[in-house]
Simulated scan of single mutants.
Amino acid sequence: MTAEETRRTRPHVLVVEDELMIRMLLEDMLTDSGYEVVASAGRLDDALQFAREADFDLAILDVNLAGQSVAPVAEILEQRGLPFVFATGYGERGLPEEHRGKPTLQKPFQQENLTHILARLAGGPA
């Protein structure tokens, strides 16, 4: 199998997280779990651009980006039919009201929980 074929078999992920160290940790966890991070954003404007234009299979969205709601990004992903999970330290009550009931990933991240929820979300590596 060529490197290009391997790359295509790994689910592509967009990571939206405003805290650099958390974003780096999450990217490492994703790579270790067999995912490929194809774009990451720490600011809402970058996240919106990636949500509209980037080629990925699923996304992880921090609910609060430096005081701004990630809800506009989630709306774009819903319009594109792309699955996503919210990352929050506040549980479901921290989600934008219109997105309550969507999958959530509890902070601090644990490898097992991350792998499990992404596998359910997109049929990725278990």
Rank of each mutant, 00 (worst) to 15 (best):
P103K: 08
L77I: 03
E112C: 02
G67I: 12
Q106R: 14
V63P: 07
H99W: 13
G67C: 04
V70A: 15
A74D: 05
G94P: 06
Q110M: 09
Y35H: 04
H12I: 03
V13N: 12
A122E: 00
G89N: 07
L118C: 02
T104H: 13
R100M: 13
E78A: 13
L118A: 00
A59H: 01
F86Q: 01
M24I: 06
S69C: 05
G67K: 07
G123N: 05
V13C: 11
E97Q: 07
G91S: 11
R7H: 09
E17Q: 03
L20Y: 10
Q106S: 09
A47K: 10
A66M: 14
G89F: 05
D62N: 11
E53I: 13
G81N: 05
F86P: 04
R93C: 03
I76C: 08
G101H: 11
K102A: 06
L65S: 04
A54P: 01
L121A: 08
A71P: 10
R52L: 06
E5R: 14
T6A: 12
A47D: 09
M29V: 10
D55Y: 04
T115G: 00
A47P: 11
S33P: 02
R23L: 14
D32H: 11
R52P: 00
R7E: 13
N113P: 01
D57N: 15
P125F: 06
L95R: 00
P11H: 14
A71E: 11
D55R: 14
T31Y: 04
R8G: 11
L77E: 00
I117K: 12
V85T: 02
A39R: 12
E19R: 15
E97C: 00
D62F: 08
L48G: 12
L25P: 01
A119H: 15
L58N: 04
D45W: 00
D46C: 04
R23W: 07
A71C: 05
L48N: 06
G67H: 13
T9K: 15
E92M: 08
G94N: 03
V70F: 02
K102Q: 07
D46N: 04
L61R: 02
F109I: 14
T6C: 01
